[in-house]
Design a protein around this nucleic acid. Structure first.
Lengths: 226, 226
DNA sequence: CCAAGGTTTTGAACGTGTTCAAGAAAGGAT
DNA sequence: ATCCTTTCTTGAACACGTTCAAAACCTTGG
């Protein structure tokens, strides 16, 4: 049942695995996801078709590796933002724009394989069990973004806000994927408008008029988490 | 360039087309989308594989017909709700729950072909040009839901709210697709919690404290619509 | 050095969505 | 009636993702 070792047994195998992965990512970028065939990946990497499948259970698994790379790059970029900015809005904006900057070169490619990520049954789905580590990492980053900022929120909201901010980010990514404008201009417009809005809402969350609404939102989120 | 007529030229052809579609939908429901092959559809419908492709350009196009059916059924159900209820919250809740009721029998199937709808390049995408008629119809329904209700909102918000409500519905559908709980219990929890919240926010939208926020939201939406 | 057992590699084969050239059927127009 | 055009039908063929049994290649204990 496991002809696909996560960690190759020998250095040579690791090298082969890396070659396949590198070739795949290059071809994905050059020709797009759909037009890149597993046969082409194998041939260019100098291995047989069977070998490619020995190391990667499916074409999707090849993409997972790419996705992980992207996430790592984004997190590094966010670290810089967090070190530089202390305002909540500036940090949030920096984080979202960092994602756009990191992902921009791959927009066409991303849109092509997004269909796979959207499949609830796919391990690439942001809600899947396999994505849990990446998801938790991103949420943890959002928590640091919030906690290290000047935002003042109630204890209850502070606990849940990182999750909501992660959801916001997923929404932005969704918008980005569908964004066909030049250089994803519309997504940047969205971010520039969304951040001040969220900032304002967070600040207002402690106003008496809004306390009830905020409590209801938090209660709803909590009831869905079971 | 057009071997796929939208309207068959002869009654016999229309009958063949209908038979293929009916067979496909039945098999989709019985065996799931992925496990239903075009060869099986053709065989069960008593035609050749080529014929199936003469009437439907792709497997996805067969799904489009199913989707249209679902939408029609939903709109009929909403009509009843609008005739019965006058409160904004009751109408919104009725509309969302009508969707859940109509779609429930097809949840497993829907989740399987959702990946296709998520592809920005697919005609099945809710944002695609091909979906424009269906989308406009749904938004128009939301407008009637709002205008015929007891909700009092500013002129500016009234103009944009139907679009936002449609977006809300898309969000609920997204949640529903990912909802693996028995009978999609979690989605129903979401709807029951979301509706009062939206209702409250809409009512509060005219409060002086929130005027600024509402204006910003509307301005953002407007700036993205270009 | 050999044998045994694990690891890696291979390419043929399968099932699938889709295409296409060729032909059959069905109407006209003359 | 006879051709011509358009509409419909067919099944073979293609390209792709994926599987699998067999072989080749280690590594290690004796």
């Amino acid at each position: 049942m496991e002809p696909v070792p996560d960690t190759p047994r020998t250095p040579k195998a690791a090298q082969t695995r890396a070659a396949i992965l590198a070739t795949a990512l290059r071809l994905f970028r050059e020709d797009g996801y759909d037009r890149t065939t597993m046969r082409a990946v194998a041939k260019e990497a100098g291995v047989s078709l069977g070998s490619a499948y020995y190391y990667f259970a499916s074409k999707e698994h090849l993409v997972q590796a790419f996705y992980d790379e992207l996430l790592t790059e984004h997190q590094a970029a966010v670290e810089e933002v967090l070190a530089r900015e202390s305002g909540f809005a500036a940090r949030l904006q920096g984080s979202l724009e960092a994602w756009l900057a990191v992902a921009a070169p791959h927009h066409a490619f991303a849109a092509q394989f997004f269909r796979n990520a959207a499949d609830p049954a796919s391990p690439l789905s942001p809600f899947s069990a396999e994505s849990a580590p990446a998801r938790d990492g991103s949420i943890a980053l959002m928590r640091r973004l919030l906690d290290g900022s000047d935002a003042k929120v109630s204890r209850a909201l502070q606990a849940q806000l990182p999750d909501l901010l992660w959801l916001l980010q997923m929404g932005v990514v969704l918008f980005w994927v569908y964004d066909a404008s030049d250089d994803q201009r519309r997504t940047r417009t969205l971010v520039r408008g969304l951040v001040p809005l969220v900032d304002r809402l967070v600040r207002m969350s402690r106003l008496p008029v809004l306390r009830g609404v905020v409590d209801d939102v938090l209660a709803l989120v909590a009831s869905l988490r079971t």
